[in-house]
Design a protein around this nucleic acid. Structure first.
Lengths: 188, 188
DNA sequence: GTCTATAAGCAGATAGAC
DNA sequence: GTCTATCTGCTTATAGAC
């Protein structure tokens, strides 16, 4: 892929996050990238295509396996490892000031466009299955009863998603404490 | 307040939820309301003013006290009552197909406009304080240790918010089970 | 590949008649 | 209060030169 192509995507990411899709014109993206509008249309047939392409790249970054690796979980480290990995995930997404904002944009899009809804649903289910597998492993280690496994996986998925939303300075919640408590509460 | 004024707000609510603020023109709102665009400007100075006014009305509906009343909580019914009220809240918001979508719109707005951010933060803190008071009551009843009270209140707030988001047919999670589990997990 | 110039349309908002 | 008509500006997108 060409260098300009990547640059356009990078500036789009930032500008869409800051202003939203509708309030970010192709002209503004062009200006920020240091080219003109028709140059963007050379790489992307339409604004919608640009938004879709960007979405594909973002989706690839938020796979469950990028944050949680079952192979690293032993009987002894299980609870602390799960706590730790969740915190690392929050930290990573906090370091990108645009991540949360642009995800909100795509979440709104998904409520009106089945294409986006389907993709975000897939991400959700990867987390669901990921946590489910992790909890089954915990069960094998004898750390967990088989009861409520499905609910507990859904529970963790929702918490992870929610903490993301509230993990910034605007809200004075304590996401780390909440996650630690959540993890602890499934091992009773 | 005039009848037309209310009608404009009602149609705005629906259209903003369905299409988003930017994709909903004043012309469309006028058309749906059965009037012309200048008639809307007679009631609202600007589109922004319309969006703000609507926001004020919505905010009034999502106060903690509309869903949870501490006076109804006794030592015996506490856990089941808390579970029940949470479910009622989800049900109520599910019955309005526009609620979630328009709240997403305002949430996105809040990430760019301090006015909206402040108001939504207030709502969040009312829930936080509400749950905190409820948990202190539970503590008085001897149902709870004083440990982690703050974290547990934040925990419930985030769960309630997250369940809202995933309480619709698109996602095959089981919000009732998750809420029930969450409530149970704070009384160990 | 990247540009200048431009098309075609819709947005928010208002003037002024009734 | 509500209308018709209109202004101004910005939007996505393209034609065609270099």
């Amino acid at each position: 892929m060409s260098e300009k192509y990547k640059e356009i995507l990078e500036h789009s990411y930032q500008l869409f996050a800051e202003n939203g899709f509708d309030q970010t014109s192709m002209s503004l993206i062009a200006k920020q990238t240091g080219i003109t509008k028709p140059a963007i249309y050379y790489y992307f047939n339409s604004k919608e295509k640009l938004i879709q392409t960007l979405f594909g790249h973002i989706i690839d970054e938020i796979k469950f396996n990028n944050f949680f690796n079952p192979l690293e979980y032993t009987k002894d480290n299980f609870i602390s490892k799960l706590t730790e990995d969740g915190i690392k995930m929050m930290d990573k997404q906090l370091q990108d000031p645009y991540y949360n904002k642009i995800m909100n944009e795509y979440y709104v899009l998904s409520s009106r466009d089945a294409h986006y809804a389907k993709a975000l649903n897939t991400v959700l289910h990867e987390f669901l299955e990921g946590f489910l597998n992790l909890l089954k492993l915990a069960q094998k280690y004898g750390l967990l009863s088989e009861k409520d496994i499905q609910t507990k996986a859904e529970f963790l998925t929702i918490i992870v998603d929610g903490l993301d939303k509230y993990s910034n300075e605007e809200y004075d919640l304590d996401p780390v404490a909440i996650w630690a408590f959540s993890v602890k509460s499934i091992f009773y």
